[in-house]
């Protein structure tokens, strides 16, 4: 009995010592993490909470904010004549840009991976726009598309009668989409190209022996095998396209009329031009909800088409 008690006592002492040690280590770890924690709190957690709070106020950048309950949201959904067109514009942009981006980048990725030489060069060339500042890109494209600009000159020389892209109600959004594609396709191209290159050659060889044509091999083997990367690219592109702002700010300022006004631009307009910070915050939260909903929908959908190997 005495032996058992002694063992139990020793164990208890060891456990205590261990606990003390754990606490010491925990404290050290906390101090190491403190700089990041302060950064995250100051620049992420506090602004997020602040924007939630602001969305229930009528803060006008100057002066004291007043609590208005759900008034901003009610106004947004029921009274604001601009809100629904803006939502429609955003969804239109997201849908068209997302579909075109994925198709073009996948096409380019497949083309690059089929090349026997120069793969690296093409990857660099297509990736260049990704690390070019978006504002600079948009300014250059705005000059190209401006009335009497290079684009008008080309269409004129080819005797194609098109209205100016930036001033036409229907075509302005297409101009924004072209610029967004130019800037955004490279990232997905490189991403998908890397995924395609990771597909072991033996799968493709096995498929050739099984009698699969190049078309079959692409649709039945390669595409399912890169589906996790394709899914990642689609989700990320959808998120960034719902937030579109730079190109619109530089090229169209939401115009002509409100033909290219999107949620991102609307937040800027309400918050920093009309100084309706509370109202802008509520739009930001609507945008957040849309992004969450679309992402959740994509995650739900992935069960049907994304194949994970483990």
């Amino acid at each position: 009995m005495a032996v058992v008690e002694r063992i139990a006592a020793t164990r208890a002492v060891t456990r205590k010592r261990k606990n003390r040690l754990d606490r010491g280590e925990g404290r050290t770890a906390f101090f190491f993490l403190l700089p990041s924690l302060i950064g995250v709190t100051l620049f992420l957690v506090v602004p997020i909470i602040a924007s939630v709070v602001l969305s229930f106020t009528n803060w006008k950048l100057l002066g004291q904010p007043q609590f208005v309950g759900f008034a901003n949201y009610i106004k947004l959904f029921t009274a604001d004549p601009q809100f629904w067109p803006v939502v429609r514009n955003t969804l239109f942009f997201t849908f068209e840009y997302l579909v075109l981006n994925i198709i073009i980048s996948l096409g380019l990725a497949v083309w690059i991976s089929s090349l026997k030489m120069g793969q690296r060069w093409f990857r660099v060339i297509f990736f260049l726009p990704t690390f070019t500042p978006g504002i600079a890109v948009a300014i250059v494209w705005m000059l190209i598309f401006a009335p009497g600009g290079f684009f008008d000159f080309v269409t004129g020389s080819l005797a194609i009668h098109l209205p100016n892209l930036l001033t036409d109600q229907k075509l302005a959004m297409q101009a924004v989409i072209i610029v967004s594609l130019w800037a955004g396709v490279g990232y997905n191209t490189v991403l998908f190209n890397a995924a395609l290159d990771m597909v072991p050659a033996s799968y493709m060889e096995a498929a050739r022996i099984d009698g699969a044509s190049a078309w079959d091999r692409f649709w039945k083997i390669r595409l399912p095998l890169i589906s996790p990367t394709l899914f990642f690219g689609t989700v990320m592109t959808a998120i960034t396209s719902l937030q579109v702002f730079d190109q619109i700010y530089v090229m169209t300022r939401g115009g002509p009329g409100s033909a290219t006004a999107t949620l991102g631009y609307s937040i800027f307009q309400k918050g920093f031009q009309n100084f309706q910070m509370g109202y802008a915050s509520s739009i930001a939260w609507v945008m957040f909800a849309m992004i969450m909903a679309l992402t959740a929908f994509q995650f739900w959908l992935q069960r049907k088409w994304v194949h994970y190997d483990n």
Binding site: R208, I209, D210
Partner: peptide
């Protein structure tokens, strides 16, 4: 082309299509 030669091949890595079941792998050709 390989498919016209009426041969079958077993690879060192097996090369089983990971996104297909055993049945689908065998039925693919």
């Amino acid at each position: 082309e390989p498919k016209e030669r009426d041969i079958a091949m077993v690879f060192q890595s097996y090369a089983l299509y990971p996104h297909m079941t055993v049945r689908a792998n065998m039925a693919f050709s």
